Simulated assay, not measured.
Amino acid sequence: MSDLKSLITELHKSLDQKKLDAANEILSRAKRTLLQQNVLFPSASTPAQVRSQAREILELGAITSLRQMDSASFIRYYQQLQPFYDFERETSTSHESSKTSQRSKITGLYLLLLLSSGDTSQFHTVLEGLIVEASLEGRSVEDDPFIKYPVELERSLMEGSYDKVWRATKSSEVPTEDFGLFSNVLVGTIRREIADCSETAYQSLPISNAKDLLFLESEGAVVAFAQERGWSLKDGRIYFPAQADVVAPLPETTGTVEPVQAGHRPEKGIALASASVIENTIGYARELETIV
């Protein structure tokens, strides 16, 4: 027990000091200890304190992976944590364990990862389970701020309210600093989807409008983005390739979370229905410039 407790203390210290490489080294030692004590999976024969410590180590591992933007590792930790969360909910010690559990935060971050990856199918599968659980307990799933945040973002995305998404990722609405890590990811996802729709809806756009539309900070950034997409630039306008042409590959975006399913693009979760949505987005972006 003392070994696990000291490892947890070391992990917290490394994360507080933003020493992620050190945290990874401690996690390697911690997981070996969990394996040696046969507590990588919860069991009724395991003392409650040890189960709680094992769960906390895995939670800290998930946070470490997230801060390194390693989505595959984060997903593995999330999956390893589910038996612990299920066990705690189903046993009489659940109330005591919930005092230290970060289940809501980890689950909210997982939902946000799915949303950023465009995996709306899995997003709703997880959310529906949470809704049923909350209903049985006589509460709303959105009573939990960690769950409410990704749910409201997804709702805004489906409505095409990209100004709300942009504001939410830049404001005090972000539950914790870890949720803020997804700011560039979400805006990048929106930017690429808007770009896809722009190619379909228009033959060309003024660079100044594209700057507002794509939530880019300067016209220079628009030029760089246009070049990555294979768009033509002439006389202050962007000219999109004909639909018959081969569509340029998606550009790499700093901070982008890799797709959950390696090797193919996940289901799109953000759909732009028409040119009118683009026009609204341009208007929203212009309004934002006067606010920020």
Rank of each mutant, 00 (worst) to 15 (best):
F87E: 01
L113I: 06
F123D: 06
R103L: 08
L113Q: 04
Q82W: 00
F87H: 13
A134N: 09
K99V: 15
S92A: 14
M69P: 03
I63F: 14
T107Q: 10
F74P: 00
T64M: 09
S116C: 09
Q122R: 12
Q79N: 10
V126A: 00
Y77D: 07
I63M: 10
T120S: 15
L127R: 07
E96Q: 15
E88A: 14
R67G: 00
R76W: 08
Q79G: 00
S116Q: 03
L115T: 05
S121L: 14
L113T: 08
E88R: 05
T120N: 07
Q68K: 12
E59M: 06
E133S: 13
S97G: 05
F87D: 12
E128Y: 13
S104M: 13
S101M: 03
T100I: 12
V126M: 06
L127V: 05
L113C: 09
T93H: 14
L66F: 08
H124A: 01
K105V: 02
E128N: 15
R89C: 08
S73V: 10
S71A: 12
T91V: 03
S101I: 06
E96P: 02
E96Y: 15
S65N: 08
E133M: 02
E133F: 10
S116D: 09
K99Y: 14
Q80F: 08
Y110R: 10
S116N: 03
G61N: 01
R89I: 07
F123C: 02
S97H: 14
S121H: 11
F84N: 01
Q102H: 14
Y77S: 06
S73C: 11
T125A: 12
T100Y: 13
G129K: 06
S104F: 15
L109F: 01
Q68G: 00
L81A: 02
Y78S: 04
M69K: 14
V132L: 15
Q102N: 12
L115I: 06
D70H: 04
K105T: 07
G61Q: 11
T120L: 11
S101E: 06
T93Q: 15
T93E: 15
Y78C: 03
L66Y: 02
L111Y: 06
G108M: 01
R67D: 08
A72S: 12
V126C: 04
T93M: 12
L130K: 05
R67I: 04
V132D: 14
Q102E: 09
E128S: 15
P83G: 07
T120D: 09
L114S: 02
L66T: 02
D86Q: 13
S98V: 05
T100D: 13
K105F: 07
S101Q: 02
E88V: 09
L115R: 02
E59C: 06
S117I: 00
G118I: 05
T107R: 10
S117W: 03
G108D: 03
R89K: 12
Q79S: 07
S97A: 15
E88W: 08
A72L: 10
Y85K: 02
F74Y: 07
F87V: 10
F123K: 08
T93R: 10
E59Y: 08
D86H: 13
